[in-house]
Design a protein around this nucleic acid. Structure first.
Length: 466
RNA sequence: GGUGCCAUCGCCAAGUGGUAAGGCCGCAGCCUGCAAAGCUGCUAUCCCCAGUUCAAAUCUGGGUGGCACCUCCA
């Protein structure tokens, strides 16, 4: 497999630290609010990556953290007059449910900041011991960026001298403007943890480095991890700082490969609270089937910025529909696992830095070829077997086509309407039998008015929500 | 201001040196009582200019136009 390494800025052949094994760590959500489409995109991308790595035969350990210590969480708790844990439990639970709805598997490890304080203290202490961190008079602990000659090697950023001077003047307690907090002293009596450095709260960046050391780091290798991932915005400063901490506190670097997914914009605009255009997953799920969202959000290469709009979503859905129509065509037939050339090609495409566009093109070609052969007369025993096996492979590898095809096409239609449609179809069949086409067409118009399409097939009349 | 990314058919989107994948939309046809679905066929020389090369959408330089990060952020 080749992966684009966003630090070396090139595609690299993936070679794991330990043969046959892959360790992957992705920055997860801070649980103070609902997940938006950007969280979904990131989770989907790395969900796909793990599925492809597993298909390649790797034993994958995938960790995605939950940040449950944060100023924004505290603020939310105060606003809603709830405990911190009520807030974090609520949003963690919601996150899990929404991720499940878009077919994202749970990571193998899901470390929380509150459960990793021991590792955080240990990491900070070793940074202090090795002179890479210092304590201020106020009781804060900062990482000394000037002590790390490799600082900024990740993002390749250039320190702005003017900017640096200005900031140093404005915050005299830091040695360098770029220094960041490892431990924040808190004296206002709100949420604190008792650490060897006094009571306070951990900084954000230190959390990931500590959790990786605790759960993932493998022995005496050059890197703690094979792959570290996250949103494109995290490269700096978050990942830069994580890398610095790990490099200075341990005898290894953080990750061999760095992957960053592109941003999700809404109708050409960045999602942001101030613009009021945040698109929450839970709202999207009310209108669209979770799998439609999965397909749409994954349909563009993970590194590109993604512009979410309904028109594109609908045309993307039509593509997913075709998978389900073929499933419907072959519904009820049993299948056995079988490797086909199509499956090899599909995996090969995904192994090229998750080239989803090529993968979808291969799927579309497979679908129309299968449909074409099924359209001609004959038994097609072999073709059916291969096709069913191909569809099962797509389900497993990409998570497309996992539902019952009939239910898929009925998303968002209530029971009363379903009953009504069933009755109308019965009436129309009667009219058709009697060759009363004027009446049958009239009934079809009524059915159409319910917002569904109908299709006559040798197996009977089926309907789909438009 | 600093750093970086991007610009391919009406729309979405691959391809990064060897002569433009795929999908949506549209048009024509097959199928159908008529439809729908499915199938077949048709539709671009790659933002502009200059250069390198036998050969460039793909490399180099210069424009123009988008965008992102530099502060919390997936």
């Amino acid at each position: 497999m080749t992966l684009f390494d966003s630090v070396q800025k090139t595609k690299r052949l993936f070679i794991p630290l330990q043969e046959g094994k892959v360790s992957l760590y992705v920055c997860g959500p801070t649980v103070y609010d609902d997940a938006h489409l950007g969280h979904a995109k990131s989770a989907l991308v790395f969900d796909l990556l793990t599925k492809v790595l597993k298909a390649d035969g790797y034993d994958v350990t995938y960790a995605r953290n939950i940040t449950d210590i944060d100023d924004k969480i505290i603020l939310k708790a105060q606003e809603q007059k709830k405990s911190i844990q009520e807030i974090t439990d609520f949003y963690t639970d919601a996150f899990h449910k929404e991720m499940q709805a878009i077919g994202v598997s749970r990571p193998d490890i899901e470390p929380k900041a509150t459960e990793s304080l021991d590792a955080i203290y240990q990491l900070i202490q070793s940074l202090i011991d090795s002179q890479h961190a210092y304590k201020t008079l106020e009781g804060d602990v900062y990482f000394d960026t000037s002590s790390d000659s490799a600082y900024l090697s990740l993002s390749k950023r250039v320190q702005d001298e003017d900017d640096k001077l200005q900031r140093v003047e404005s915050s005299s307690n830091k040695k360098n403007s770029a220094d960041f907090a490892l431990w924040k002293s808190v004296k206002d009596g709100s949420v604190t943890f008792e650490s060897p450095f006094g009571s306070g709260r951990p900084g954000w960046h230190v959390e990931c480095s500590a959790m990786i050391e605790k759960h993932m780091a493998c022995g005496n290798k050059k890197y703690a991890l094979d792959i570290h991932g996250g949103g494109a915005d995290l490269l700096f400063p978050h990942h830069e700082n994580e890398a610095a901490q790990t490099r200075c506190a341990t005898n290894h670097d953080l990750a061999n490969y760095w992957m960053h997914n592109g941003f999700v914009n809404i109708d050409g605009q960045k999602m942001s609270k101030s613009l009021g255009n945040s698109f929450f997953l839970k709202d999207a799920l009310k209108v669209y089937d979770g799998e439609v969202l999965r397909f749409y959000l994954l349909s563009t290469h993970y590194r590109s910025n993604f512009n979410f709009n309904e028109e594109d979503l609908l045309s993307s859905k039509k593509r997913l529909d075709k998978i389900y129509r073929l499933k419907k065509r072959l519904f009820g037939l049993s299948h056995e696992e079988k490797t086909t050339p199509f499956q090899d090609e599909l995996l090969k495409a995904l192994n090229d830095d998750l080239n989803i566009s090529s993968s979808l093109a291969l799927i579309d070609e497979m679908l129309s070829k299968a449909n074409e052969i099924l359209d001609t007369t004959g038994k097609h025993k072999e073709l059916k077997r291969d096709t069913l096996s191909n569809l099962a492979y797509i389900e497993k590898l990409l998570g497309f086509g996992v539902k019952n095809p009939f239910e898929y096409f009925q998303f968002g239609v209530d029971e009363d309407t379903k009953t009504k449609i069933a009755e109308l179809i019965l009436q129309r069949d009667e009219a058709k039998k009697a060759k009363d086409f004027a009446l049958s067409d009239k009934i079809r118009d009524e059915i159409l008015a319910c917002g569904v399409n109908i299709m006559d097939t040798p197996q009977g009349t089926f309907w789909e929500k438009v």
